[in-house]
Design a protein around this nucleic acid. Sequence first.
DNA 1: GAATCGCTTCAAACCGCTTTGGATGGTTCA
DNA 2: TGAACCATCCAAAGCGGTTTGAAGCGATTC
Lengths: 364, 364
Amino acid sequence: MTRRDRLTKVRAIETVLKRDAAMNLKELATKLGLSPTTVSRALNGYPEVNEATRERVIAAAKRHNYHPNTRAIRLATGRAMAVGHVIPIATRHEIVNPVFADFIAGAGETYSRNDYDMILSVVPDEDEDATYRGLKSKGNVDGVIVHAPRMNDPRIALLREIGLPFVVHGRATGTAEPYSWLDVNNRRAFQRATEFLLDLGHSRIGLVNGLEFMDFAIRRRTGYVDALTARGITPDPGLMFSDEMTEVAGFRATQAMLTLPQPPTALLCASMISGMGARRAVESAGLVVGRDVSIIIHDDDLSYMKNGEDVPIFTATRSSVREAGRLAAEMLLALIAHPEDAPQQRLLEAELIIGQSTGPAPKA
Amino acid sequence: MTRRDRLTKVRAIETVLKRDAAMNLKELATKLGLSPTTVSRALNGYPEVNEATRERVIAAAKRHNYHPNTRAIRLATGRAMAVGHVIPIATRHEIVNPVFADFIAGAGETYSRNDYDMILSVVPDEDEDATYRGLKSKGNVDGVIVHAPRMNDPRIALLREIGLPFVVHGRATGTAEPYSWLDVNNRRAFQRATEFLLDLGHSRIGLVNGLEFMDFAIRRRTGYVDALTARGITPDPGLMFSDEMTEVAGFRATQAMLTLPQPPTALLCASMISGMGARRAVESAGLVVGRDVSIIIHDDDLSYMKNGEDVPIFTATRSSVREAGRLAAEMLLALIAHPEDAPQQRLLEAELIIGQSTGPAPKA
DNA sequence: GAATCGCTTCAAACCGCTTTGGATGGTTCA
DNA sequence: TGAACCATCCAAAGCGGTTTGAAGCGATTC
């Protein structure tokens, strides 16, 4: 079979497939004895169409199960009606994490309500730039959400340069120009948590932080350090750990601290998962959480990883990442609708909830 | 400002925005002194174009940073170049789970490599049907992946009816017609795990299963029951729990079993997370995992929830859900390319890896 | 009674690409 | 020498909507 034959065959198949294609605007217009123009306007709520006609059109559209072809709309309007989320993969697997799933779920709810598509691009680290450029120049999306910003994050300059609207989930310290972001007040959250522990009489407090090239991790450390300093305690570098927020990392950091000559009596953990690792380390050292060692975690309120139900397992700084997703998506859609507006910012406060993992400092 | 004025203004703004619009095929063709036809063919590798010309075109495309507009390609070819993943939300939050994130990451890698978009629809349970119908009739996707199948899953009949290619991640017991799926051999995995425990001398073995309207959960229970029965042990309903795969649920089920007159000496847990709940219950009962109570989990090999690194924390049946995502996506793309082909199936085997959480049954 | 106006409607252009169905000119072969 | 045949290239017709610019027409105004 020659190439030409094959093409011919492919086209024949495609023709067959199109036989059960959906009804389109032209057909519907013909059935109604109207022009496509009028039908289009009737369905899109334009004022220059008789109300009686509009109702007739809407009824017919429903009756014939007419759904305008998205691809045609997109070409005609020049809008993608889609938002992108780029997820770099491989070396840093920090991003494919449970937090991300819940954020996506929240954002997705907003998109669904507004008839936007959410498109996820999973790409190797080194293709990230090219991906953003492609998304823009090929016209696949109208805007993007930037995840997991780092210090001086280069993506912000890039996106501004190529003119793709964006909202950052988190902040990127070191960026000069204003940009739109939505963040949790991580500094304040960890500051309050630390103060809470200090109030309970703890003075050796360990920090099991996330990777500190991530912006939120830096802010958390700042809050922790500030609270200690304010009470006249010099932060001890031997009590500050920074690693991925995994169970194993939490375990190791805690284990290391517990073997110190002066082990901590309380811990701040960056996530529920690292908190579970910390708990394992505490318990396998024969100690009891909440009595010998107090633990406070940051709780992103993930739907499948609830910190208890009625009674929280861990005392925690809590902020729903899913709600953050919903809000960030709303900000982005607003930005897409009014690109000329000034960048918006939104800072969410975490609440401090008391669970079973904290108690007064043990008498020395 | 009248409506017309406003429209005029909007258009003016749009015109301004288009000034920095990307170069298009026609412009590129003009610059080259060729017709759009030839340029298109040159770039798409069609044979009816002189090689010298092709090279010239490719060079010019690169030089002028030409990227064909995806929206136009989609309209012209009638293909969406996109795959959908529908995630029902709200009542059953089972799906927004960590497994899902890793599966998506795997599938996304495949899509990226093949220049397909992945679109995620997060919709309320009751809109799921309408979402699939809309995806098809509005032409947003060329196919979908079906997640978390249940017994007699109605989505399969629906998708076949509307003629949207699909691959199921898992299987849906009770479906008569053949369909494409990719699954882990959950029955065999749990059977082997149970046999392993039996070999270690355990005879009271508890099951902390996922929700048993999910197909995989049923299969796991079958494997567990079969292994027991084969050794002449009658499965005890008091040792079989079924709930969401959360930490808290794992904790509760385990706690309940440990207070029985004859508590189990070993547990099978449906996930890493429920296994952690189980471990918490064991330890808070003053027992030691791997000595007093053995635990085997199913490990989906999630990137952010590693079951240890060198040495596994838990003995586990392991199967990478990310790899499953990659493979399922490949199956779907093949199906889209050859819709006339027979449905494909693929059954992956889990490996049994030995960790620190199992040991011989304690002497009674 | 003519000019004007608002309300409806429509034909045609357009979005940016693919694909069809030639056209052109040079080769090959009888 | 002329017909058949390639290898290349192009004009134009889609794809299925939206949007422009204009037209028809009864009602209002002067």
